[in-house]
Computed example of a mutant assay.
Amino acid sequence: MQNNPFRRLLARLRQRHVPVKELGERDRRRMLRHFLALNDNDRLLRFGIRLKDEQIEAYVRKIDFTRDIVFGVLNRRFQLMGVGHLAFLDKHGEREKATTKDRVAEFGVSVSGSARGKGVGTALFERAAIHCRNSDIDTLYMQCLSSNRTMMHIAKKAGMEIKREYGEADAYLHLPPPSPGSVLQEAFHEQFALIDYAVKANARAAIKWLTPKK
């Protein structure tokens, strides 16, 4: 198993890229567990207020996967270490009336405490940005507290235009039109994430099969 060349290649890719997978309806419960595990300070940084458990449950329940895009980073136990949520708006902030040509995308991200400093937040942001670019969305928007050092670092690194007011920061990234290279880049990252997911699923199934039943 250790000498498998495919596993060695996957291990090298993991060192360079954090696998970011698009999430769907089947992941809703994983998302809920991820958000509920955030402490009060992490909830404040993610949502701008300290949401109670029932408010988080309502937020996760209302996510529409046919309209919004959600990305996640999973560990070996299929627990979400990070979640990035793209909500699409028109130029006036309306969600329902947005069309492809006049939309902006609002991005929110959370990372589990155990996964900090591993590039998870940056990987989620980059995945969201390339998806927006390939969807002909010209502006990626983030709103967060100015005290959120991680998001401020990501925003500055990406070259976002940042406006601060009353302890909050609005960050804007103007995206170029899609190109063959950007389309290929997104396809590669999604395929890599799917392969990583399949390897983890197979490993998990093998462990369950080899573990004696009590």
Rank of each mutant, 00 (worst) to 15 (best):
D90S: 11
H85Q: 00
A87H: 08
V83Q: 08
R77I: 13
H131R: 03
K118D: 03
I130M: 06
G84F: 07
S135Y: 00
D90T: 11
I130V: 14
S110P: 01
H131L: 01
A128P: 02
E94V: 14
R116P: 00
M142L: 13
V83W: 02
F125D: 10
G93M: 08
K97D: 11
T99N: 14
R103Y: 03
I130R: 01
T99S: 14
K101S: 13
C132N: 06
G93L: 06
V109D: 03
L140N: 01
E106V: 08
C132E: 10
R127F: 02
Q79H: 13
A129V: 10
G117R: 10
A87V: 07
G84Q: 03
A105T: 02
R103H: 07
S114V: 14
R116F: 01
R116W: 04
V83G: 12
E126M: 05
L86N: 10
L80F: 12
V83I: 12
A123D: 04
H85R: 02
F125W: 04
C132L: 00
D136F: 12
R133E: 11
A98R: 10
L124W: 01
Q79F: 10
N75A: 07
R133F: 06
S112H: 09
R133M: 07
T100D: 11
A129Q: 03
L80W: 11
K97W: 13
V109T: 08
K118F: 07
R116T: 08
G84Y: 00
T139V: 15
E96C: 05
S135H: 11
G113Q: 14
M81D: 15
T99D: 11
A105P: 02
R127Y: 00
K91Y: 15
N134Q: 05
N134W: 00
R116H: 07
K97G: 06
V104C: 10
R95H: 14
L80G: 09
T122Y: 08
N75Q: 03
I130N: 03
G119K: 05
G119H: 07
F107W: 08
H92M: 13
G117W: 02
K91S: 15
F107Q: 01
L140S: 06
V111P: 04
S112C: 09
R77N: 15
T100G: 12
Y141G: 07
D90I: 10
D90G: 02
G93D: 03
A123I: 09
T100M: 13
G84V: 00
T139Y: 06
H131P: 05
N134A: 01
A128T: 00
S110I: 05
L140I: 07
H85A: 06
G117P: 09
S135V: 04
A87Y: 10
F78A: 14
L86Y: 07
D136Q: 09
L124M: 08
D138C: 12
S110G: 00
A123E: 05
A128R: 06
A123S: 05
T100K: 14
G84T: 01
R76M: 12
E106L: 08
E126V: 01
T122S: 03
V111I: 07
F88T: 02
E96M: 12
H92S: 15
T99M: 15
A98T: 09
E106Q: 13
D90K: 13
A98W: 04
G119W: 04
V83R: 05
T99L: 15
K91Q: 15
M142S: 10
V109C: 11
F78Y: 09
R95W: 10
D138R: 10
I130Q: 09
